[in-house]
Design a protein around this nucleic acid. Structure first.
Lengths: 137, 137
DNA sequence: AACAAGATGCGAAAGCTTCCCACTCGTTCG
DNA sequence: CGAACGAGTGGGAAGCTTTCGCATCTTGTT
């Protein structure tokens, strides 16, 4: 049950938190901005504040429940963390996002970081391009 | 001479533009935010507006003279474009930036994009970690 | 030297995100 | 089960970076 995840993060199980989590889990799109989540909640008749959505998303991020991504759209997007690392292909026309994982790239990154004396904390690889659908038009 | 680069971009050679370019070229740090450039100009006694710095940097970016990078610091940073593509290692403690290029990673990216029907326009790989200096402390 | 197009600087405004604070709710303990 | 306390919330104000609008000033040209 969702609530266990919230409890596990040391957070009280409140209505806003449960609802934010369920929006993230139930949405067809995997990547939602805070605004997206907020609007979805309003549509569902929930009476939450945008500030709360931001707060909750930040707490979820700290708890490892969600990941925050910074694509070049000017706003952060959030997705539930399924544990498996992956990177993103983003269509600059329609904003479609495709996820991928590549062991070889990960491997090279570790090598490069080591070579420069860095201990990796995180990394973000985003490929921007035009997807097949948009290329046709 | 610098002015040729500005002219080549189809821009008038004005004092602010020449100065912004020279700050970018003369700075020891390779990655500067708009604010950094602005402050540097003020220190040098130049009377420019911050809006102009932003405008000029954007024009330089469009002209291919500089590249804009979006690290996760909340503000964009700019560096002069030396033509050779590269990616970045950023220290999350001291913000030190190390550049690197890896043919194997580039190669894999092309393969992955092709595989998903994307035509690559651009990409950004940033590895966040702790550099050797900061790890010691 | 004069002119038109283009640049600039300033302040105002936009967009995203966080802060503040009085009020409300969830949890714990009696 | 209910009271009490600390945590959480909503709404608006405020913060930051970046952009816009416009009157004024420059550049490059004739």
């Amino acid at each position: 049950m969702d609530n266990q995840q919230i409890k596990g993060a040391g957070l009280k199980v409140t209505r806003p938190r449960a609802k934010v989590l369920s929006v993230l889990q139930g949405s067809r799109r995997r990547h939602l901005s805070a605004e997206d989540v907020y609007k979805e909640l309003l549509i569902n008749g929930e009476d939450v504040g945008l500030a709360t959505v931001y707060r909750v998303l930040t707490q979820f991020e700290e708890a490892g429940l969600v990941c925050r991504r910074h694509f070049e759209t000017g706003q952060s997007v959030f997705e539930i963390n399924r544990g498996e690392h992956h990177d993103h292909l983003v269509c600059i026309r329609c904003n479609r996002v495709v996820e991928f994982a590549d062991a070889l790239i990960e491997e090279r990154q570790r090598a490069i970081a080591a070579q420069h004396g860095f201990r990796i904390e995180d990394h973000a690889l985003v490929i921007y391009g035009v997807c097949a659908g948009c290329a046709k038009e």
